[in-house]
Design a protein around this nucleic acid. Structure first.
Lengths: 121, 121
DNA sequence: TTAACTACTAACAAAAAAGTAAGTATGCGG
DNA sequence: CCGCATACTTACTTTTTTGTTAGTAGTTAA
């Protein structure tokens, strides 16, 4: 289901992505599952099933969708092997690898703040 | 409207926030408007109306809601002055200030990636 | 034939985020 | 009285994100 164009919502999003580097960055790496997926792929290239098994709580639907977005945004390469049963591998592109520093620092900051205070919402 | 408890959605969110520092960090600083608000407050403490005027496209509703969340999460101090007309000031706490480095690096990475590639979604 | 493997797709439903519009409160001034 | 200033609150509505469920495809083995 495509996002509706020409809504205020859509226009505001586009403007924020255009004008704020953070909002843009988070549109690439943010969300419930992407950080975890990116961290997994930092370790090693992985197959769909490996990712599915290693990320607790994620559904097939969400895994596929997030991988597709990461691929579309150029962070991930998806390689289909001509085999049966199907074999598909996902690995980070250079762009994907460039998230490493940011992800680690976000993680560090998050872990620090999490032990300092409470999450109230 | 409180978030629904005991849904898979809610449980997965709580787990990700608990187990992934990035997801936790982004729950504090992520979203359409928070990064921009945080950057504004990095410059100087500001009043509600100043923020409203300086952030293009944000509604009063969204500004209030985001400020409330930032306050609840300990990133922002809200000071009410005993005046008429009402005067309320918002400024970053130490915790809020600690986001500066991360925000600047996210911004830098985002701006770099934005000029390198296209946003496909 | 069924069952298994892998990696999805499609069609919804539920939940959350964001947006719209109207209204409130307290003084002050004309 | 009305209009103004400031900073919200309230009750919805719209849009997006996330989750659920059933199904698909191609081979292989029992």
């Amino acid at each position: 289901m495509r996002k509706k164009e020409n809504s205020t919502n859509s226009i505001n999003e586009a403007n924020q992505i255009k004008n704020c580097g953070v909002v843009y960055a988070l549109s690439l790496i943010g969300g419930r599952w992407k950080p975890t997926i990116l961290f997994s792929l930092l370790d090693a290239k992985q197959r769909y099933n490996e990712l599915l098994k290693s990320i607790e709580g994620i559904s097939e639907r969400m895994l596929v969708a997030q991988l597709r977005e990461l691929e579309t945004d150029g962070l991930v390469n998806r390689t289909v092997f001509a085999e049966v049963p199907p074999k598909v591998e996902y690995e980070l592109t250079d762009k994907g690898r460039s998230t490493e520093k940011i992800l680690r620092e976000l993680s560090q900051w998050g872990i620090l703040q999490r032990s300092d205070g409470h999450h109230h919402r």
